[in-house]
Simulated assay, not measured.
Amino acid sequence: MDPIIAATHSDPYPYYAALRAESGLSFHQGLGLWVACSAHAVAAVLAHPDCKVRPAHEPVPKAIAQGYAGKVFGQLMRMNDGERQRCPRSAIQPGLEMIDAETVSALVRARLISLSADGLHKAMFMGPVCVVAALLGFTPTEGRTLSELTADFVACLSPLSSPAQLDTAHAAAEHLNGYFVERLSAGDHQSPLLESILQRMADHEALLANLIGLLSQTYEATAGLIGNALLALIRNPHLKGEMQRAPARISDLLTEVQRHDPSVQNTRRFVSAPCEIDGASLKPGDVILVLLASANRDPQLNDNPDTLILDRPARRSFTFGAGRHQCPGQTLALSIASATLSEILTHTGALDQLAWEYRPSLNGRIPLFRER
């Protein structure tokens, strides 16, 4: 086991605990990078001004730098620091925060969901993107197309993707851009969310890229949140009945699952200047693997951290980031996941008839279901 393989291991949490017992921040010789695993070290790295989201010499991964996906990647607020991060965030976050849960629930209820493996895949991956597309003023038919294009585009975000997948990602990015150009030019005032963003953001190119980013962020992170909540129900059968009797508890389950078994297990930071963090001296060019999932289970952050506790007092979590790069769509993601899980639980199919494996990834923990 190593800190990267851990993301898709059946149970990485004992390994994370062993890492924390040794050191909060240490250098991993095999991987050639620093590993932050304690709550204190993770918080310090995420807050440090010299820990950037991309290396200075490679703002866009070389594998995609010459294509359209690279053009989009270079504008994404989550892949930038400074003004190129703050400006899109300040334009997009207020609109996301004004979306009410009932609007999201109505959009989720409009979709057909089944407990087949294929049905769950669509509910986890395609459904959330369709919801965001609808909030941005697209029709249901356009939403389905956008979800398929987003599935292709996210390949550019993974180092595991093949050259063919990257070529498809470039084409998908260009098509997504075209859909948003048409949506913006329609001027039909169908989307309060889009109107809100437009009022705050003048940079047209950055706007288009970050609208695509909304879909790509929704695609993977929300899918993992829904999938890991389903696993919690499979592993704790009594919770399924509790959720069905009291649907309001679904939001409590999701809030705890995102801490206990998060879909984003780690992220990276790149040191831009000499600095000292958690007693370690770092130099420019150093890479830090930030184990968010390990920090979530640090007893210094949460009492009894390995237990799934729906009514956990003073819950703390790094899953949606922290500080300047905290995810602006956290509330929306939880609303979509809650509405989707609620719809899934209206069906009588047996979740325990499903098998699963984790989607290949270096940082994501997203179950893919299949029938036994």
Rank of each mutant, 00 (worst) to 15 (best):
R268S: 14
E205F: 09
C51T: 14
P14Q: 10
L146Y: 06
L76S: 03
R316I: 07
I5E: 15
L301A: 11
L341S: 13
R268E: 14
L301V: 12
A110I: 01
Y15I: 04
H325T: 13
A337D: 12
A169K: 00
R183Q: 14
Q29P: 08
L231V: 09
L115E: 09
P12C: 09
D118M: 03
A17W: 08
A63G: 10
L292V: 13
L112P: 03
I197H: 05
V72K: 03
S294H: 02
I234P: 07
L96P: 01
W356P: 08
R316D: 10
E182M: 11
A173Q: 06
C37Q: 06
H347S: 14
E357H: 13
Q330A: 12
D252K: 05
A69Q: 04
G285D: 06
M126C: 03
A169E: 15
P247M: 02
R324F: 06
T103L: 02
S335P: 02
S281H: 07
G187I: 10
L282M: 13
D252P: 00
S23L: 00
A6V: 05
L136Y: 05
I288W: 10
S216T: 15
E371R: 01
L225M: 11
L334A: 09
Y16A: 10
V154F: 01
L291M: 10
A333E: 11
L193K: 05
M79F: 15
Y16R: 05
P192E: 13
A56P: 00
Q190I: 11
Q244M: 13
S147I: 04
T348C: 05
P140A: 03
R365I: 04
T331C: 01
L112A: 12
P237R: 08
L208G: 07
L341A: 13
V35Q: 00
Q217R: 04
G143E: 15
M126F: 06
Q300H: 15
I113A: 07
M79I: 02
R315I: 14
T8N: 04
R359M: 15
D278H: 12
T331G: 00
L230A: 00
M1G: 11
P313I: 04
L76F: 12
N228H: 12
